[in-house]
Design a protein around this nucleic acid. Structure first.
Lengths: 400, 400
DNA sequence: CCTACTTTGTGCGGCATCCCAACAAATGAG
DNA sequence: CTCATTTGTTGGGATGCCGCACAAAGTAGG
């Protein structure tokens, strides 16, 4: 069984370096089994020794830690304003990162895919230059995917329909490693789950940009739903008879909690913070500045959006009872000013006492969450079955 | 590894009797392994031969099926109007059933628990009389549970607070088998998942009574959330500034989709369909009768409730993308008249094309869903680890 | 400094589980 | 009646894990 190999690797990822003896008690295995497993993983270059670990009486242990030098996973992203790619090693450290600003509405599908393929190729070259191997590529796309047919069926924000992103990219990359496609919000959720407190096996991630998406982490794993459409929080109808949404319906959550709703309330149309030509980070910084100075209109807008975010989050909190509500994307950048309204509505709207123990957290990953999640999905191939990585030294046994 | 033992048992449960060869291809094992596993399970009395299975060329196979005679699981329920217990065998067939009408508001906690314990004891006696063994008891309660401390913390409908239901019942039962407690709506969801199409590994169950509860089935398993409070759909706030709810808040879903909302809209206060002394089944039958006759007030009330049910379900559908939306409890009894409004709002409110493939179904389990789910949870102990059941014949190997 | 004790990591025999290959059994096709 | 096909069983072998014993490397205390 190769299962315990992955189990051990995950334990090191989620809880950091530790001795073989500690691993044995943590995983319910014997020390001898762990020794054998560690030797196997070491021969594949996935773990290494990390110095002596003193602790009280008895012989000190030699800590084992993840070794990031052997393999990498690549995550990529196609968004309205940019394409990007990142490579993470087994430890989750950034090995390479490339990003390119685009305007998806002015470029053809082919051109966008060409750009992305170039970024991924450059990233893969960086990985190889470092002596590592890429085990997989996962591309996040803003839209609804048919993961069985490997096609982006509806990408309203991109203006794309029925694009076989995976196949197109595979053709351009000429790589042997698997190329997967996934939903942008889902990947962001995976990244937050990896990056946050590992005790939070149940979390709800809200990713705010122009739209509002996200993902549900249940039992430590992403909840995808029947056709992979789970997490389309932005289109929950929370205000019947409210504003019209880009999706054609009326009263969707993202019409009151999305970036546009905030900007409409906070600034006049000719205000620079509403200029799409400026970088989003700069615009958010300006909004924060105004709020810090006590500008009433800005504060009112933030309060209003925070109220709506909290209301929607409370609905989801009653349904899902997450341990943490992670706010990512533009929500994170304005977290300080949004928190009071969000927490107030969460407390008020959730049945369970003290909001069911749901903590409100703001992401520190910024807008790289989606690509990081993509890389994590690629790396999961190895965490699921470490025997995929061939042994390097001619040491112990063959590759299964 | 005992894992494949349970895997095989589940396969038989979910997909019916089949030959060893078929099991081998289904599960990705070899025929020889399956033979050994079946022999093991047979020695424990969990499976048996079920005649010859002809199919085309070659030697016919001997089908293997679940054997219900060895063990049973017991499910029980504490509700405002009744306590109940049921015993299901491994096949899911009803072996014994007992029910007792009560009024929880007029009885003390002790009296209610005494009543329930008596029902469970009688059910267990029936199981034993049939020559079977009870492997576990699961009690469903209408309220919020702290499953770690094994306590019902908040049961507003029952008027209970901080009652250690599990411990109290264990004291009264003097049985060695484990006694678990769980949320009523969650257990109903589990029962629906077992009873419905096994392909529906992702489903959303709404259980309507005075309150509205339910559960989320994701990946074939119940989603419990951080503290086990997931599925409290009734208290999602869908109508800010709406009606006051029993929970103290305003605009909860169950104030517009619960039984009381329907009755308020459909009948005057002195109408017999609003008489709590009459059985709920009879009152629902009367409502159906009026609707069938075309009574405009009744139809309008059903339409209005159906609209709210559909709206709430659409919110959850966007978040969860289930394969099926199962309506249970009083929704099921009025399914015929509720369906059009529900489906209309589901189609309108879900972003994914054709509502993400979510089918609307009405439960056929009636108000027994919760107890059946409880029994199923108890039986899961065996499906998780069939080696818990000691071999009966002095045949092959010891019990691990 | 030396001994007793504690904890870590490794080597070896044994057991359980599963796969592979071969073979007997039961049936349909010709 | 013979052959092809599929099923179920048997025995040999590989693998992964456990249990146990033992060496290694430290602390505590005299």
């Amino acid at each position: 069984m190769t299962a315990n190999l992955g189990l051990l690797l995950r334990q090191l990822r989620d809880h950091g370096p530790r001795s073989r003896a500690r691993l044995a008690t943590d995983l319910g295995l014997t020390r001898s089994s762990v020794s054998a497993l560690v030797a196997d993983l070491e021969s594949r270059g996935l773990v290494r020794s990390a110095g002596i670990e003193r602790g009280g009486m008895g012989r000190p242990g030699t800590a084992v830690e993840l070794d990031g030098r052997a393999i990498c996973g690549i995550g990529a992203e196609i968004n309205v304003n940019h394409v990007a790619a990142i490579a993470l090693d087994l430890r989750g450290d950034v090995v390479a990162e490339h990003r390119s600003a685009i305007d998806a509405h002015r470029l053809s599908v082919t051109e966008v895919l060409d750009r992305l393929a170039e970024l991924v190729t450059r990233t893969d070259d960086d990985v190889r230059a470092g002596g590592a191997t890429t085990v997989g590529v996962t591309v996040g796309v803003a839209g609804l995917l048919d993961r069985e047919r490997d096609v982006l069926t509806h990408g309203p924000n991109l203006g794309w329909h029925d694009v076989p992103v995976g196949a197109e990219l595979r053709g351009r990359l000429a790589t042997s490693s698997p190329v997967l496609i996934d939903n942008e919000g889902n990947l962001a959720a995976i990244a937050e789950a990896r990056h946050g407190d590992p005790a939070h096996q149940e979390m709800l991630v809200l990713f705010g940009e122009v739209g509002v998406g996200g993902g549900i982490i249940a039992g430590g794993q992403l909840l995808r739903g029947h056709q992979g459409y789970a997490g389309e929080f932005g289109h929950m109808i929370v205000e019947p008879g409210g504003r019209r949404c880009g999706c054609g319906r009326v009263g969707c959550w993202e019409t009151v909690a999305g970036l546009r709703a905030l900007l409409d309330a906070a600034a006049d149309p000719d205000d620079p913070v509403r200029d799409p030509a400026l970088s989003l980070d700069d615009r958010l910084t300006e909004i924060n500045r105004r709020a810090d100075l006590g500008d009433t209109r800005t504060l009112a807008a933030l309060n209003q959006v925070g109220n709506w975010v909290g209301m929607g989050a409370a609905i989801l909190g009653n349904a899902l009872n997450p341990a943490a509500l992670v706010l990512s994307g533009y929500f994170a950048g304005l977290g300080h000013h949004l928190r009071p309204a969000i927490e107030e509505h969460l407390q008020a709207g959730i049945l369970a006492p003290r909001a069911g123990g749901t903590r409100v957290e703001f992401s520190t990953l910024g807008f790289t969450a989606a690509v990081r999640g993509g890389a994590a999905v690629a790396l999961d191939l190895v965490f699921d079955d470490p025997s995929l990585v061939a042994p390097t030294h001619a040491l112990a046994g063959g590759a299964r």
